[in-house]
Computed example of a mutant assay.
Amino acid sequence: MRFLTWLLTNAVALAVALWLVPGIWLGGPTSGSEEIKHKLWRLIVVALILGIVNYLVKPVMKVLSIPFIILTLGLFLLVINAAMLGLTAWILSGTDVGFHVDGFWAAVLGGLIIAVVGAVVRRALEDER
């Protein structure tokens, strides 16, 4: 159950970023029920890969960049979030998922949105328990 909650939280946060940031997108139909049918499983796949990247790579990046995090008073964490989003797009670039991140600033904004929405959803789920 915990895995499913984690995956759905990532998917919701990613869906909000896809909706709000023009530089982050999934290929395929752009409207109607066809879009939902086509993109739903792809959104779950991207959320799973992003979660795995965040679980495996992000802690290493944080440890290696502690001086930069301290020097920038934590703002470098936005760059790390952007890097994780970019790494996810790069990993999925060889597949038919069609997840794309166009540029550094789109990745930064997307990483910020994913972090904030994910925290809000996790907090809401904790309050329900």
Rank of each mutant, 00 (worst) to 15 (best):
V60F: 12
R42A: 14
S65H: 10
G103Y: 05
E128N: 14
V108K: 03
L75M: 10
L73N: 03
S65Y: 03
L109C: 04
L125P: 00
A119Y: 13
F68I: 05
L14G: 11
L40V: 07
E34T: 12
V21Y: 04
K39N: 13
A119S: 11
V79H: 08
I69C: 07
A15W: 13
V45G: 04
G111C: 07
E126G: 10
A106L: 02
A47K: 02
I66A: 12
V117I: 15
A83L: 15
L18H: 06
G111W: 01
R42K: 15
I91H: 09
V101G: 01
F76A: 07
P22R: 15
P59E: 00
V121E: 02
L77P: 00
L92T: 04
T9V: 15
V63Y: 06
I36C: 07
W25F: 14
I70L: 15
V120N: 00
L73M: 13
A15G: 13
L4F: 08
P67R: 08
V60C: 02
I36V: 15
L77M: 13
L8T: 10
A82R: 05
A89Q: 05
G110C: 03
G118K: 02
G98L: 05
W19P: 10
L50E: 04
I36D: 10
G118F: 01
R2D: 00
G111P: 10
F68N: 05
N10L: 03
H38V: 07
V60H: 09
T72I: 12
V116W: 08
V60E: 02
G103M: 05
L92I: 11
I24Y: 03
H100N: 15
D102H: 11
L14K: 06
R42F: 11
L71K: 13
G74V: 13
E128D: 14
H100W: 05
M84N: 01
W6E: 01
K62H: 12
V16D: 02
T72H: 09
L50M: 06
H38S: 15
S31I: 00
L85D: 06
L125T: 09
V21S: 11
A82T: 04
G51S: 10
V117A: 05
T30Q: 15
E128S: 14
S65G: 08
F104A: 13
A107T: 06
V12C: 07
V21N: 03
P22Y: 07
I70V: 15
L26C: 12
A47L: 06
L78F: 12
G110N: 08
N81G: 07
L85P: 06
S31M: 11
E128G: 13
G110I: 05
L87H: 03
V53N: 02
W41M: 07
I44Y: 06
G98R: 06
M1E: 09
G86Q: 13
L20Y: 09
L64A: 14
A89F: 06
G74S: 12
T88S: 06
A47N: 03
K58T: 09
P22G: 13
I24H: 08
P29H: 10
L40Y: 11
V79P: 08
A47W: 00
V121Y: 05
A119K: 09
L48I: 11
